[in-house]
């Protein structure tokens, strides 16, 4: 399994043609206490860069974009009852949705972990 990152602070785990998407530890720290996550519906299709989800923290609403194109196969129902999972475990249990990739070549433009760490350090 490979993990990719975007400049919008999303992570993407890829296994075969399935991509699991969430927001990074850095992103949850910036957002603060998360009180609601609006997830896409299963079956929705996204083009890379589309609005895919919304994270509501106490202070603001923030868009989450589709990091790659694909069809939503599954959403993380746990987040409905416990949105704070994104704060406590952003990069594992706090995942948002799974996509079936439509264009695996889009992954080439994303960062690996060390590139993302450097990107965050530069902010």
């Amino acid at each position: 399994m490979s993990r990719y990152f975007t400049e919008d602070h999303e992570w993407v785990d890829v296994e075969g043609e399935i991509a699991t998407v969430g927001i990074t530890e850095y992103a949850q720290g910036q957002l603060g206490d998360i009180v609601f996550v609006e997830l896409p519906v299963e079956g929705a299709t996204f083009t890379k860069g589309d609005d895919a989800a919304v994270v509501e923290s106490v202070k603001a609403a923030s868009d989450v974009y589709a990091p790659v194109s694909g069809e939503v196969l599954e959403i993380n129902g746990e987040l409905e009852a416990e949105p704070a999972l994104v704060n406590s475990d952003a990069e594992e249990d706090g995942w948002f949705f799974k996509l079936r990739l439509t264009d695996a070549s889009e992954l080439d433009s994303l960062m690996n972990e060390s590139a993302y760490d450097k990107f965050v350090a530069s902010l």
Partner: peptide, 8 residues
């Protein structure tokens, strides 16, 4: 992620 509720 882009915050759109805050004045930029």
């Amino acid at each position: 992620m882009t915050e759109y509720s805050e004045d930029e």
